[in-house]
Measured scan of single mutants.
Amino acid sequence: ELSWTAEAEKMLGKVPFFVRKKVRKNTDNYAREIGEPVVTADVFRKAKEHLG
Rank of each mutant, 00 (worst) to 15 (best):
E1I: 10
E1Q: 13
E1H: 11
E1G: 13
E1T: 12
E1C: 09
L2W: 04
L2I: 15
L2E: 03
S3W: 12
S3L: 15
S3K: 14
W4Q: 01
W4S: 01
W4M: 00
W4F: 00
W4V: 00
W4K: 00
W4Y: 02
A6Y: 09
A6S: 10
E7G: 06
E7S: 06
E7K: 07
E7R: 06
A8P: 00
A8R: 00
A8I: 00
A8H: 00
A8K: 01
A8C: 02
A8L: 00
A8M: 00
E9L: 15
E9T: 09
E9C: 09
E9P: 00
E9K: 11
E9S: 07
K10P: 00
K10I: 13
K10G: 10
K10Q: 13
M11P: 00
M11R: 04
M11C: 06
M11F: 05
L12W: 03
L12V: 03
L12N: 00
L12T: 00
L12P: 00
L12Y: 03
G13E: 15
G13P: 04
K14W: 07
K14Y: 09
K14T: 09
K14R: 11
K14C: 06
K14G: 07
K14H: 09
V15N: 03
V15M: 13
V15K: 03
V15E: 10
V15F: 14
V15D: 03
V15S: 04
P16G: 04
P16N: 06
P16M: 04
P16Q: 05
P16V: 04
P16L: 05
F17M: 10
F17Y: 11
F17W: 15
F18H: 14
F18D: 11
F18G: 12
V19G: 09
V19P: 03
V19M: 15
V19A: 15
V19E: 15
V19W: 15
R20N: 02
R20G: 02
R20S: 03
R20K: 05
R20M: 04
R20W: 04
K21R: 12
K21P: 12
K21Y: 11
K21M: 13
K22T: 12
K22S: 12
K22Y: 13
K22D: 11
K22C: 09
V23C: 06
V23D: 02
V23W: 10
R24H: 04
R24W: 04
R24F: 03
R24N: 02
K25R: 13
K25Q: 15
K25H: 13
K25Y: 12
K25S: 10
K25P: 02
N26V: 12
N26A: 15
N26I: 15
N26T: 09
N26D: 15
T27I: 15
T27D: 00
D28Q: 07
D28L: 05
D28W: 03
D28C: 05
D28Y: 03
D28P: 00
N29H: 11
N29I: 10
N29Y: 08
Y30R: 02
Y30S: 01
Y30D: 00
Y30C: 02
Y30N: 01
Y30W: 07
A31W: 01
A31C: 06
A31D: 01
A31T: 03
A31S: 05
R32Y: 06
R32P: 01
R32K: 09
R32Q: 07
R32S: 05
R32A: 06
R32V: 07
R32C: 06
E33V: 10
E33P: 00
E33W: 13
E33I: 09
E33D: 10
E33C: 09
I34V: 10
I34C: 07
I34T: 10
G35I: 02
G35P: 02
G35F: 05
G35D: 05
G35Q: 06
E36C: 07
E36A: 15
E36T: 08
E36M: 08
E36K: 05
E36I: 08
E36Q: 08
P37I: 13
P37W: 12
P37G: 09
P37Y: 13
P37D: 10
P37M: 13
V38H: 06
V38E: 07
V38P: 00
V39F: 00
V39R: 01
V39N: 01
V39I: 08
V39Y: 00
T40M: 01
T40R: 02
A41D: 05
A41K: 07
A41I: 08
A41N: 04
A41E: 07
A41M: 06
A41R: 07
D42M: 08
D42I: 07
D42N: 07
V43E: 01
V43K: 03
F44H: 02
F44Y: 11
F44Q: 01
F44G: 00
F44P: 01
R45N: 10
R45M: 12
R45W: 09
R45T: 08
R45Q: 11
R45P: 01
R45S: 07
R45G: 05
R45D: 06
K46V: 05
K46R: 14
K46N: 08
K46L: 09
K46I: 05
A47G: 04
A47M: 06
A47S: 06
A47F: 13
K48H: 12
K48C: 07
K48Q: 15
K48P: 03
K48A: 14
K48L: 14
K48I: 13
E49W: 07
E49D: 10
E49S: 09
E49K: 14
E49C: 07
H50V: 12
H50C: 06
H50L: 12
H50F: 11
H50W: 13
H50I: 09
L51E: 08
L51D: 08
L51T: 10
L51M: 14
G52W: 08
G52Q: 14
